[in-house]
């Protein structure tokens, strides 16, 4: 499915957070959204996911959702958002329980997505027993269970240490290779952006506007962080953002 944003503007009281964002995300494309902290990335993602009403503009979803899709726009949260009172398997099961699915079909789906995220052995573990990387895998399994057409990921790897992050990036690429979902991926990590994005969109500091876009043609599976081309792209993004980031950092929070 494709996603189109037309002139998205958003204000919190007198503060304009987003100002006229136009963006199109093609089917099966991963768009990475980067920008200084507080520029409105999460807000934009919430608007795309229908969790927040924009002050102006509209988001459109085009095309038919894939066969068996329960939740076309599916969110992955930075802090995992797992229910601590449900085991890994039950957290996945949660999002299927409101759909007309037999108990066997449901457990089959749960088993399948847990296998795909390498969690089969941890199906009955409580979230508190899992490491950060494992928790995010459970969250990914949960997202996959509803066969999403579009994945909305808000800094899904930011809460993890760098080694775990590396492993999960590989997993994410593997999953994308299989499912070919459309994705908007918010990150503040430029290396992550050039590793995972077909396209990287840079937002300016508040009010957030698109200040730069960059396409990366290397297929995701072939990307290697030793590749000088990727490193150069990351460097270019940093140059484009650096002054904005510094200014954003000095900004007083008036909220």
């Amino acid at each position: 499915m494709e996603l189109r944003l037309d002139g998205i503007t958003h204000r919190y009281g007198a503060v304009t957070v987003l100002d006229g964002i136009d963006l199109a995300v093609g089917s099966g494309q991963v768009v990475c959204l980067v920008g200084p902290s507080g520029c409105g990335k999460s807000t934009l993602l919430r608007i795309i996911g229908g969790l927040e009403m924009p002050t102006g503009g509209a988001v459109h979803l085009m095309g038919e959702p894939p066969e068996g899709c329960f939740n076309p726009l599916t969110y992955v949260f930075q802090d995992f958002a797992l229910l601590p009172w449900r085991t890994a398997a039950d957290n996945v099961s949660l999002v299927l329980e409101d759909h007309p699915l037999s108990a066997e079909a449901r457990s089959a789906v749960v088993a399948d997505v847990l296998a795909r995220t390498k969690l089969t052995d941890f199906a009955n573990a409580w979230p508190r027993q899992l490491s950060g990387g494992m928790k995010q895998r459970v969250a990914l399994a949960r997202a996959l269970a509803v066969r999403p057409a579009v994945m909305l990921m808000d800094e899904p790897l930011s809460a993890l240490d760098s080694q775990t992050r590396e492993l999960l990036m590989e997993d994410l690429i593997g999953l994308w290779e299989r499912e070919r979902f459309t994705a908007v991926y918010v990150t503040h990590n430029l290396l992550e952006a050039v590793r995972l994005g077909h396209r990287v969109v840079v937002l300016s500091r508040r009010p957030g506007r698109i200040s730069e876009q960059m396409t990366i043609d290397t297929p995701l599976a072939e990307r290697d962080m030793a590749d000088p081309i990727l490193l150069a792209k990351a460097e270019r993004l940093w140059v484009a953002m650096r002054d904005e980031a510094a200014a954003a950092d000095r900004e007083l929070l008036h909220v």
Partner: peptide
């Protein structure tokens, strides 16, 4: 965030109350 998570997966209001709010308040 847990409630938003429930909403983002299209859970019904009643499911959210029963499966997220109730155990969270327990």
């Amino acid at each position: 965030t847990l409630i938003r998570m429930g909403q983002s997966f299209g859970l019904t209001w009643w499911s959210i109350v029963r499966k997220i709010v109730l155990p969270g308040a327990l």
